[in-house]
C-alpha cells in the first residue's frame, strides 16, 4: 500500500470538509478504485456517481492506473467563463 494525496476544490472540498485527503492505495489501482476509496470518506456520499478525476493536470479515464507520485484531483462540475 502507498499513500496518495487527492486535491479537492470548490463544492467537493466543502462536502469533504478539507482541501486535500490522503488515502491508502494498492499498487496498480485505477481511477475507479480511487473513487471507491473516496466514497468511504465522511461526506462523500453526496458526490455524483462519476466525479471527474484529473491526473497530472489532465482529465483521466476510469481505467487509468494511479501512481503514488501522481498529482491527483477531483474536479467538480466546471463553471468558468
Amino acid at each position: 500500500m502507498s499513500t496518495v494525496t487527492v486535491q479537492l476544490f470548490a463544492s467537493y472540498a466543502e462536502l469533504l470538509g478539507a482541501p486535500t485527503v490522503e488515502l491508502p492505495l494498492a499498487p496498480g489501482s485505477t481511477v475507479k478504485d480511487l473513487l471507491s476509496r473516496i466514497r468511504s470518506l465522511p461526506g462523500a456520499s453526496s458526490l455524483p456517481n462519476a466525479p471527474r478525476v484529473a491526473i497530472n493536470r489532465s482529465f483521466a479515464a476510469s481505467e487509468q492506473i494511479v501512481e503514488a507520485s501522481d498529482e491527483i484531483a477531483l474536479i467538480p462540475p466546471v463553471a468558468g467563463g
Partner: peptide, 23 residues
C-alpha cells in the same frame, strides 16, 4: 472553457445567500 477548464463560480445573491454554480 465552459466544458473543461477547472474554474468554479460561487454566486453571491442579493438576499445574502451563496451557492455554487453547477451548469
Amino acid at each position: 472553457i465552459k466544458k473543461r477548464v477547472p474554474i468554479w463560480k460561487m454566486e453571491h445573491y442579493a438576499d445574502g445567500t451563496r451557492d455554487w454554480v453547477d451548469p
